[in-house]
């Protein structure tokens, strides 16, 4: 009897999961299906997920009619990749120093990092704009990259990570005559891969999906990132939902690839950022 009720419980759970998975997928499926439909089919307002007349024209049109689309893609990639690389390096360096190196003023710097942690990004938007303006960095890659190459949250996370790092390895490195930098790059970093992977996902996704700061920094269409491009695209092709959905799908792929690739580090990363301190 007990086994039977347990099994029906499991079935219930499966049904619940399946229903939620369905809810998760429907919007994507609907968007994907629209991206392969023609405009007349879209306007007729049917609810068929399989296009009546499957077409790739929407994707072709985007790249042909919107010459900047490729450019936006490249901008987004350049910015997200650069930002991610710098973050991995700089956050780890700062986190390592805060965890392992003894130097005067360290307590103060750590306090500063904690204080900065409390300041939400949106709040610095307007002053950032003014600073970038006075640097002449509006509409330039460095305008979006420079403010984002360090992240207090991940400095904190890396510090926590390095605190638990086995001391013996560094001592051995010191005996081998390696200085701090050599120890850091040759011994410590290679062993920090799980933490770095988690960081990669969060920083890359954050940069890739960011909307507000690019909106004010990148006002020249050539310098748009993809989210801005998508928004402009929507402004231009208001009625052409087939194009808008195709563009959305193209936009989603790279982030999805990164997620799929680093997926197993995700939970780990969430644990790190989940404020366990």
């Amino acid at each position: 009897m007990i086994a039977k009720s347990a099994r029906s419980w499991v079935w219930l759970l499966y049904i619940a999961l399946a229903v939620y998975a369905f809810i998760t997928f429907i919007p994507f499926a609907w968007a994907l299906s629209a991206s392969f439909k023609s405009l007349p089919e879209i306007s007729s307002g049917g609810t068929n997920f399989i296009p009546k007349a499957f077409t790739l024209d929407n994707y072709k049109t985007i790249f042909l009619q919107e010459p900047l689309f490729g450019r936006w893609l490249i901008n987004s990639i350049i910015i997200a990749v650069t930002v991610t690389l710098f973050n991995l390096l700089f956050n780890s360096m700062a986190g390592y120093a805060l965890a392992r190196i003894t130097f005067p003023g360290k307590q103060f710097l750590f306090f500063l990092v904690l204080a900065v942690l409390v300041v939400p990004g949106q709040i610095t938007l307007l002053p950032k704009f003014l600073i970038l303006k006075s640097l002449g960095w509006l509409n330039s890659y460095q305008g979006l990259i420079a403010p984002a190459i360090v992240n207090a949250t991940f400095i904190f996370m890396m510090r926590q990570f390095f605190l638990n790092f086995p001391k013996e390895l560094e001592e051995a490195a010191a005996l081998d005559g390696l200085n701090r930098f050599e120890t850091f790059f040759q011994v410590v970093m290679p062993l920090a891969k799980p933490a770095l992977a988690a960081q990669t996902i969060f920083i890359f996704m954050g940069s890739w999906n960011e909307f507000l700061l690019p909106l004010v920094v990148m006002s020249n269409p050539e310098m748009f990132t993809l989210p801005l491009g998508l928004n402009a695209f929507k402004g231009q092709y208001v009625t052409y939902w087939n194009y808008i959905m195709a563009a959305s799908m193209i936009f989603t792929l790279p982030a999805l690839a990164i997620y799929a690739f680093f997926n197993r580090y995700f939970i780990q990363g969430v644990t790190f950022t989940g404020g366990k301190g």
């Binding site: 999906n209 989210p227 998508l230 929507k234 808008i244």
Partner: peptide, 8 residues
């Protein structure tokens, strides 16, 4: 991205 989700 929230931009994509909003459009969808």
């Amino acid at each position: 991205s929230s931009a994509v989700l909003t459009l969808i």
